[in-house]
Amino acid sequence: MWRIRAIPEVCIGCGLCRVWCKVEHSDSKNIHKAFKPNAPETISCVELEESGCESFAMQCRQCDEPLCAYGCITGAMTKDPDTGLVTVDKKKCVGCWTCILMCPNGVIKRDERNGRSAIKCDLCKDRGFPSCVEHCPNDALVIEESPMNPLAAHSAPLSGSSRGDENILFSEEVDDDE
């Protein structure tokens, strides 16, 4: 599975990650159209954290134990057992924001452009590769590839998952969540 990781030592705080995230999550996916004065508000799923000279960008870590999904009252937030991606089903989400309250990294946003729904980093799955990582001018955002932790599979496959009846098998020792 993929995770985006920040490297604060080389983050220059330019904010381009935010810009390109907004572009990717706009209707047009075009930087000029996304930021046009009358365009609908754009939302960045990246938080740029800054304090003095320190900075880093934070987006969803696709947690093994996703508190947002555990707290989700509707079942809209799930962790995909195949890709490890924590996704929100906009059709199911009612915008109660429990996920926002649960996420210890504060990286889930409100999207009230079209109904109320939570919005979060989806690793630009339509695009194939996260735009923020691609556009980071100093490699301060990198893709971390790690094997899927079987215990982390939040077994709530929505339609589309290929996983059938057989359960996730694993042999490796997995830490408990203590």
């Binding site: 990781r5 093994d64 134990e65 210890p104 932790n149 982390a152 203590e178």
Partner: peptide, 11 residues
């Protein structure tokens, strides 16, 4: 921990 962990320990 927040930046590097895989999000398993929330205590």
């Amino acid at each position: 921990e927040r930046i590097h962990s895989s999000g398993r320990n929330w205590q």
